[in-house]
């Protein structure tokens, strides 16, 4: 564990809590892509199956259980409890165009051709693009609430901090995982346009609005 990974994990945790708080306080999931949230639940469910096969640390296990359970809770809130507020008309990204190619790639490019390893690889690839339905939704509506922007900033920062963690681990531990690094870079690049808007608008007290 190094400082970059710890702050990254805390940023990820903060993002999830922010999203849940936003939904709970406003009794609404307006502006949130249910498709992205389903993909995140799928990411955690397929990656953390190793909870049953290998123990790393209490921290590791607690975080995994937290991520799986909160992602399922988020999906439940969006599709059941607050369904009436879900903006499905704008959440029209075709997720099969992500899941199918990513599944194929996980079969072809992985560290080891075994079920758990392929599922882990699938989750890494899927996570890198899982935010696309959310970004697509924002480009369709042309706006994002400030709290949604904070959520996205925390969520995007997490993987950017992991890149610093991988640089650190490469130099100080000789650790290098090509699959995680490439996917993590792709993931972070997808957020760059949003990061720019966040820094130039939200941090100056304005909402994010996009030209039509």
């Amino acid at each position: 564990m190094n400082i970059f990974r710890l702050i990254g994990d805390m940023s990820h945790l903060l993002a999830i809590i922010l999203l849940l708080l936003k939904m709970w306080k406003t009794r609404s999931c307006a502006g949130i892509s249910g498709k992205s949230q389903i993909l995140f639940a799928l990411v955690f469910a397929s990656r953390y199956l190793d909870l049953f096969t290998s123990f790393v640390s209490v921290y590791n296990s607690v975080m995994k259980i937290f991520f799986i359970s909160t992602s399922l809770l988020t999906v439940y809130l969006m599709y059941f409890k607050f369904r009436a507020t879900y903006d499905s008309n704008h959440d029209t990204f075709r997720v099969e165009f992500l899941v199918i190619p990513v599944g194929g790639l996980a079969f072809l490019v992985n560290h080891e051709f075994s079920p758990l390893e392929i599922l882990w690889t699938f989750s890494i690839y899927l996570e890198s693009v899982a935010i696309l339905p959310q970004l697509f939704m924002m480009s369709k509506t042309g706006e994002a609430e400030t709290i949604t922007s904070h959520y996205l900033f925390a969520l995007g920062s997490y993987r950017a901090l992991y890149i610093l963690n991988w640089v650190y681990r490469y130099y100080f531990e000789g650790f290098f995982d090509l699959i995680a690094v490439v996917a993590g870079c792709v993931q972070t690049i997808l957020y760059c346009d949003f990061f720019y808007l966040y820094i130039t608008k939200v941090l100056k007290g304005k909402r994010i609005t996009l030209p039509a």
Partner: peptide, 10 residues
Amino acid sequence: KGAKGAKDEL
């Protein structure tokens, strides 16, 4: 850990 993925990470 060898060539297998970054399993100690989240």
